Structures are given as C-alpha cells and as structure tokens.
Amino acid sequence: MKILPTLLPFFFLISCVAKKDQYQESLAMNVDLTALPSPQPSQKASPNEDVNVTKDVDFIKNAPAKKLIKDGFVEFETSDIEKARAQIMNASAANGAYIASDKQNSSEDKISYTLIVRIPASKFDSFLNSATKDVRYFNHKQIDVKDVTAEYFDVETRLKTKKEIELRYRELLKKASTIKDILSIETELGTIRTEIESAEGQLKLQADQVQYSTLRIEFYKITSTPAVFTYQLSSAFSKGWENLLTIVILAVDVWPFIFLGVGLWFGFRKVVKRESVKEETDVTI
C-alpha cells in the first residue's frame, strides 16, 4: 500500500501521453489532404529512370520496319479500250512499274484486257490514281494489305541460326578423323544447307512482294448491238444446220425400223382397201 502513492504519478503521466497520441491521430485524419501542397518534382531524375528512358529511345530507334504486302484487283468498263490501255502503260512508266502479264480477249459482244502490274510499294497509290483517273465507277475494286513483319524476322532469325550451325559443322568436318564421323557431319551439312536455301528463297520472295505490290486490272468494252445481232443470227443458222445433220444421222442409224414401218403401213392400207372393195361388191349383189 505504501508503493501505490509512489506509482500514481507514473500512471498519470502514461495516461496523458496516450491521450496526446490519440488526439494527434484524430487531427491527422481530419486534415483535408487536397489542401496540402503537392510535392515538387525533383530537378534531377534518378539513375534508374535515366536508364529506362535510354532503353525506350533505343527500342524506338531499333524497332524493325513494317513488312507489308499490298495486292489489289480492279475491274471497270470503258468506252475507249485502247486509250485506257495506253493510260495504264503511261502510268506504269511514270511510277517505275512494269507489266508482268498482258492478255487480250475478244468476242462478238465484248473486247477485254487483263493486265497484271508490279508496282513499287511506295508508288502504289500514285499509280492507281493515274491509271484509273478517267474511270467513273468500278465493277469491282479490292485492295488488300498483309503485315508479314513477324513472319519475315522470324525466318531471318532462324536463317542466321542455321548459318551459325553450318559454320560449326564445317569446323567439325575439318577436325574429323574417321570416315564415319565425316559421313555423319556431311549428312547434317546437307540437311542444314537445304533448310538454309529454303529460308533464303522464302525471304527473297517476301522481300520481292514487299518491295513490289501487285495489281490486277481488268477492263472491257461492250461492242455495238448490230454486231450482237449478227452473231446471234449466224449462231442460229449454225445450230439449225447441226440439228438437221443430227436428224439425218439418227435416220440412218434406225433405217431398218423405218423400212419395216413403211412396209407395215403399205400392207395395212392394202388390206383395208381390199376389205373396202369386198364390202362394195357384196352390197351391189
């Protein structure tokens, strides 16, 4: 009991400190955070931030260019087919393009051309506008763009790896001492060389398709109505003659039945006539 008066001041002090802490926490919770000044940005970025920025810039600079393959097809009618063809030829020369295929088809009611043009990818739109500037409407127009960037660089990476493997095999071939080892390494070299040539061919094809776009152009002219009528009339005569020949051939093919039919018909008429004469004789008597 003598100790209790001694400890009372100590407990009172602890109680006051605890109440002070609770008051400060309550005050902090009631402070409007939006009224506090925003922290000022530091004048100098940290070393890690500098490294990240440098990496981002390097990535943008070293990003691979897009590999795009553009193909198209257009079809239209024209009133002057030779003028339309000359316009396409002039547009090809002006844009560095070349004609890969040139076909003409003529019939009694229509004359048409089919051209396949290879155009530098950067001049595709310019060529298309120049070649078809007088076309009022298209029967068909379709432009397709295919992104082969991932595929192209995947093949390129695999090609590089295969060439490195080929070099290692060649180094091993120089060090081979037995016939078995030499034959085994040469077999692997043949296989890897075939794969390299296949990958190189694929890359060359894709590079050509990326560098030069392909446009198929079909245009035609409808001929005059008299020409159509003449064609229809001549076709009717030809068809009639063919039908006549068909009937003659059919008649020759079944001639025994025709003769038999004719014989039966004459025999039937003879019998009918005899019966008619007999009836007339009986009536007279």
Rank of each mutant, 00 (worst) to 15 (best):
I185G: 01
K175W: 11
S276F: 05
A236R: 00
Y23F: 02
K162R: 09
N30L: 03
K175H: 03
F124K: 04
N139C: 03
A199G: 03
I258M: 09
S198A: 10
S107I: 00
S276A: 00
E25R: 11
L205D: 06
E197H: 02
T214H: 12
D21Q: 07
F127G: 01
A236H: 03
M89V: 12
E164F: 14
K141Q: 02
G190P: 07
Y23S: 01
E166L: 07
A251F: 10
L172S: 11
S184D: 00
P9K: 14
V271P: 02
D71G: 09
T34I: 01
T191R: 06
L183P: 00
E171A: 02
I258S: 05
L172K: 13
S130C: 00
F127L: 11
Y169P: 03
D147I: 07
A93E: 09
L245P: 05
V51E: 13
S177R: 11
L233D: 00
V145I: 14
S101G: 07
A63W: 10
K239R: 12
E197F: 06
D125H: 08
L7N: 06
I285A: 10
K221N: 11
A84R: 10
A18L: 09
F59V: 08
P64Q: 02
R85Q: 15
F268E: 03
T161Q: 13
N243R: 07
N62D: 13
G190W: 06
I69L: 07
S198F: 00
T194Y: 10
E49Y: 15
V148R: 01
A251I: 08
T191S: 10
K66I: 03
F76C: 13
S276E: 02
D58G: 09
G72H: 05
I116H: 13
M1C: 02
G267L: 14
K162L: 15
S79N: 15
A65L: 05
S224T: 11
D125N: 11
A65M: 08
D144Q: 10
I185S: 05
E171T: 02
S198Q: 06
N129M: 04
D144Y: 00
K175C: 02
S130R: 04
D80H: 11
T34M: 06
L260K: 13
V155N: 07
L173D: 04
D50P: 07
I60M: 15
A18W: 11
Q40A: 03
V145C: 01
L115K: 10
A236M: 07
K2W: 09
A100K: 13
K204Q: 00
Q40L: 05
A100N: 10
